[in-house]
């Protein structure tokens, strides 16, 4: 018996040109396609039939995207790089150690050996109602994300509202990449383009990324940080296998400015900046950025941790991140 009961086709193009041709063909024939890289995110979705494509297009034969290079003052990360290769890479360890650390906090060693950084920044938003087995989901009516007419998590949402789905953003690597001002190289049937990572993320948990159909991300470009340090802290029950109930990345610049990015809470990551010279004391600045982060945050009961606890942990993690950075600067 196959675990995936719905039949679909599978293709593994070897070049970007073959990929774009295949996408055009699918679009022309109106075949529903999805991309897969490490497949550690899409497989559970296929098994529970949250996704039922006509064809899965694997990116894994695009070997040229499995590289990390230093070019001038940028690190260029090919999106097919596995999370375990990313953590161990010399350029990452030297210039972006906190990013390597965040990648190391994803899922489990076996998953990190397969999962890619491209898949991680694109990972589908999660919700306790939809990310369940088929059998479990049959026990309640389909929600908006499953083409239904209700949101079980936030019952007050109605069709016509701006945001239909509150499934939460969960990528562990995106927060630090956002703080570094990363940009993405994108290619698709309509040609190449470049966007800021910040512009990838949208507000709705069911349409949470801004890529156009058929586009893939080929590279993540990160400027090598000068005179700054960062840290990522993740709230989970277990050290392995858990998505972040809350993830907080903190970046401190040499001039004392602080930036914070959050994951695991809202439909999209939150990013906040505080300029040191606008505050009388360092502590005033921290209090203010903690307040901004808490104000932005909407938590629903989507995790083992009570929602109030997750929210209360935001300032704790921001302060802990800053302390870790300051300790690192001393050592």
């Amino acid at each position: 018996m196959t675990a995936l009961d719905k039949e679909f086709d599978f293709a593994r193009p070897k070049t970007i040109e073959q990929l774009c041709n295949l996408v055009r063909e699918c679009q022309h024939e109106d075949r529903h396609f999805i991309f897969s890289a490490g497949a550690t995110d899409i497989m559970p979705h296929l098994k529970s039939e949250i996704l039922s494509p006509d064809i899965v297009i694997s990116l894994t034969a695009l070997h040229a995207l499995n590289t990390i290079e230093k070019r001038g003052n940028h690190i260029i990360i090919g999106t097919l790089t596995s999370l375990s290769d990313l953590s161990k890479n010399n350029h990452i360890q030297q210039h972006l150690p906190a990013l390597g650390g965040a990648a190391h906090k994803v899922a489990s060693p076996q998953i990190r050996n397969r999962a890619t950084i491209g898949g991680n920044i694109m990972v589908e938003n999660r919700c306790i109602y939809i990310n369940q087995s088929r059998l479990n989901r049959q026990s309640h009516s389909p929600c908006f994300k499953a083409d239904g007419n209700i949101c079980h998590l936030v019952k007050s949402i109605k069709r016509g509202d701006d945001i239909l789905c509150q499934a939460r953003f969960v990528s562990d690597t995106a927060p630090l990449l956002l703080l570094q001002g990363s940009t993405l190289d994108i290619i698709g049937p309509a040609g190449p383009r470049e966007i800021k990572l910040a512009d990838l993320y949208l507000n709705d948990g069911m349409e949470s990324k801004s890529l156009m159909r058929g586009e893939i991300i080929t590279h993540i470009k990160v400027k090598i940080p000068e005179n700054s340090a960062s840290h990522y802290e993740k709230l989970t029950i277990r050290n392995a296998l858990d998505f972040p109930a809350l993830g907080v990345a903190v970046l401190r610049r040499g001039n004392g400015d602080i930036s914070v990015a959050l994951t695991g809470l809202n439909t999209r990551p939150g990013v906040f900046h505080a300029t040191r010279e606008n505050y009388e004391t360092f502590d005033d600045m921290i209090v203010d950025i903690c307040q901004k982060a808490s104000d932005f945050t909407v938590t629903y009961q989507q995790d083992f941790f009570p929602r109030g606890y997750r929210k209360n942990m935001i300032p704790v993690f921001i302060r802990r991140g800053i302390n870790k950075i300051l300790e690192g600067a001393k050592s």
């Binding site: 675990a3 497949a39 550690t40 497989m43 559970p44 694997s58 894994t60 998953i111 397969r114």
Partner: peptide, 10 residues
């Protein structure tokens, strides 16, 4: 790696 998360064709 986890064989349950990998399409055999991969």
């Amino acid at each position: 790696m986890l064989s349950c998360l990998m399409p055999a064709l991969e």
